[in-house]
Write a protein that binds this DNA or RNA. Structure first.
Lengths: 225, 225
DNA sequence: AATCCATTTAATTTATACATTAATGAATTT
DNA sequence: AAATTCATTAATGTATAAATTAAATGGATT
């Protein structure tokens, strides 16, 4: 007997998924406020699953719940970005070190190398969207292969928190040319099982790209993303 | 006009606080299952605030919600501890580096040094409880002074996840004699604004104490804490 | 016009009712 | 006896009603 691919998702899960998607897609813009009744109308369901979704997303940091004013999509400030990148830098560097310590399979190393190749190609074609996707894939592999589920969930959360800012600055940031060198150096360090080296290189990389992003936000006065 | 010290907490907040306390205090033991109705009876309130508390605590990782079986206090396995300590090591080392980079005030440095002194004293009196409290205080300061609210919340969450295991192994672990040297070295590195050094020392410290803890769990066959 | 206070209103918080679905187990068939 | 079916039960998921709380309003008074 074949069981259907996935258990039917509950309204709560649907509310969570849809509301979060609307926020990440900037369909609900930063600073926007909605009371529970409005959100549940938007999602076309009662207040209970809506409320559960709002509580979860608030805990994750994308919205805040203000008494009497419902939810508010949290604008990302320069200071927020600073905090988020400090943490992302720490977590991903940990992941890089773990990959080196635990060791990756040949297939896993290949996948990472392929991501770097894809980034190179996209960059030569001036396709920033494509580049960002390959870059994201590299970072996802790094964390996935570190073999720590909690770490994976954590990083995903902080990536989400900075998603809107990253999408926005993608258009105005300088070409990420030396980014690729960093990435292949990390892969090499992992392959050589040199965890300190892997950690250090990735740390420097994330620190630099984070600082670049923060400077962009500052320079362009983008304080309500 | 003086307003009361804190806004009256909602039943949801009370449910969250009390339920979590019962879990951390081991009043609800690992593996224990309770359905929503039982939990709400225990907390003496309706299912709604109870349910919200359960959802939040489940998101934090202390319990899991199994369809039709209510909540279950998650036992901590050796693998869980491994994951948790890998993350804690990464996050706290990041905090140490941030403290050094940003620089601490004389008062903050004093507080950290005092914690080390208290650990020393407690250790000389063979008071492990007292030592653990001072140790916890040191770690809390480290994160607090790194001036990153999100980081603080994160670390607190992972400390909580490992709380029951730490309490249990406190009685059987070897005396933490060289722990104090590590701590004062970290403070010194921070004072000298040497972030790489601060990070490295604390990293080694956490890695060692984590490994010690994991070995204890393994040796004693403690797999359902 | 400004301030104070009472009233109304709006939103949330909590409780409860209702709907849905998985688990259980007894009855029936093989 | 084992397996299968089907009704029953129990628990959750969802909707809504009731209670609470905080904000806003507006009229009276200064």
């Amino acid at each position: 007997m074949m069981r259907s691919a996935k258990a039917k998702e509950s309204l709560s899960d649907k509310a969570y998924r849809e509301l979060k998607a609307k926020i990440l897609d900037n369909e609900l813009h930063a600073g926007q406020q909605m009371i529970e009744a409005e959100v549940s109308q938007l999602l076309n369901m009662s207040r209970t699953p809506t409320r559960e979704a709002m509580l979860k997303i608030a805990n994750e940091g994308l919205i805040e719940l203000k008494p009497r004013h419902g939810m508010r999509v949290k604008p990302i400030s320069v200071m927020d970005m600073q905090e988020i990148y400090e943490i992302l830098t720490g977590l991903e560097s940990t992941a890089a070190a773990l990959c080196a310590t635990k060791g990756l399979t040949a297939e896993q190393l290949d996948l990472m190398r392929q991501s770097v190749v894809d980034m190179d190609k996209a960059l030569n074609r001036d396709d920033l969207i494509e580049w960002a996707q390959a870059d994201e894939r590299f970072h996802r592999y790094l964390v996935e292969f570190s073999n720590n589920d909690r770490l994976q969930i954590l990083v995903a959360n902080f990536i989400e928190q900075s998603h809107r800012a990253r999408m926005l600055t993608l258009k105005i940031r300088p070409k990420p040319t030396n980014s690729n060198k960093d990435h292949s150096d990390v892969v090499k360090a992992i392959e050589e099982r040199n965890s300190e080296q892997a950690r250090a290189i990735h740390h420097k990389h994330r620190e630099q790209s984070g600082q670049m992003m923060i400077n962009l936000l500052k320079d362009y006065g983008l304080n309500h993303i």
